[in-house]
């Protein structure tokens, strides 16, 4: 069985050109890879590959620039929205997007993301929520679920000690500077198709300079949830979505 199209065959699915094609460092079953491809696809379909500037963050998400082949700059932990603000103000006609995990965005970077949204910066922030600090070995994050065990909440997250998980999409949707805020997932084909639509909408918000656009991707983290990839994928649909319902929380995009 050849890896090349034979007679009468056409390639029905290939990696977008905006992707580098490098195999990823992510753990088996981690959803980062799927999210990267959707973003790469959306960049390609909107002809944005040559004008895109990616702002990476610190965490498993940092290596996005190895997989999406666009100009990129690394931001210090939590500061991608501020760096993206600077990039967009310097180059207003470029397509600027940030890619952050939940530790980066909702813990140390909470001030930066809220103010970037509140200023209505014409940038798009992709937020990958897997409820833990992944790269550093699965510590509790601001989106860790109540009762969820992590390496720093061994007896499960405790409401009295650690507070409840933060619903970032809803918080950001409450800000006037936000043009689009939604939460999606990539654990099923239906959700993947929805996520693609959300990306298109967010990209349009930026291109039409209608304000801040934000998409939260629920993501599996088999390694740090101590689950198999299939269990983790399942867990996203059953448990995560109870606390983090999918949906569009603000959409003023024409």
């Amino acid at each position: 069985m050849s890896s090349q199209p034979q007679a009468e065959e056409r390639v029905a699915f290939a990696l977008p050109l905006t992707m580098s094609g490098a195999s990823t460092h992510f753990c088996p079953g981690c959803h980062h890879g799927i999210i990267h491809r959707l973003m790469g696809e959306c960049l390609e379909q909107n002809g944005l590959g040559e004008s895109a500037i990616c702002v990476g963050s610190v965490g498993c998400s940092v290596f996005i620039y190895n997989y999406i082949d666009v100009d990129a700059v690394e931001a210090p932990h939590g500061r991608a929205p501020a760096v993206a603000t600077g990039v967009k103000r310097a180059l207003p006609d470029r397509f600027v997007f940030g890619y952050q995990g939940d530790g980066d965005l909702a813990a140390i970077g909470f001030s930066e993301i809220m103010h970037c949204a509140n200023r209505g910066e014409d940038v798009t922030i992709i937020f990958v929520n897997n409820t833990v600090f992944g790269m550093t070995g699965g510590q509790m994050a601001p989106t860790t679920l109540l009762g969820q065990n992590t390496t720093t909440s061994p007896k499960g997250r405790d409401m009295d000690k650690d507070g409840a998980p933060l619903n970032m999409s809803e918080l950001i949707a409450s800000l006037d500077g936000t043009a689009y805020s939604s939460r999606v997932a990539v654990n099923t084909i239906k959700n993947i198709k929805q996520a693609k639509k959300a990306l298109k909408k967010a990209y349009r918000a930026q291109n039409q300079k209608q304000g801040f656009s934000f998409i939260e991707f629920l993501s599996a983290c088999p390694t740090n949830w101590k689950m198999t990839p299939l269990q983790a994928n399942e867990h996203v649909g059953t448990t995560l979505m109870q606390r983090f319902p999918l949906g569009v929380f603000r959409d003023t995009v024409e």
Binding site: V11, A12, F13, A14, M19, G33, I34, V186, I189
Partner: peptide, 18 residues
């Protein structure tokens, strides 16, 4: 191509019969 859509590692190429 559903399999390729969800594959996190871009490990599947799909050939459709013309």
């Amino acid at each position: 191509a559903f399999c390729a859509e969800i594959c996190p590692d871009y490990a599947i190429t799909v050939f459709r019969k013309k």
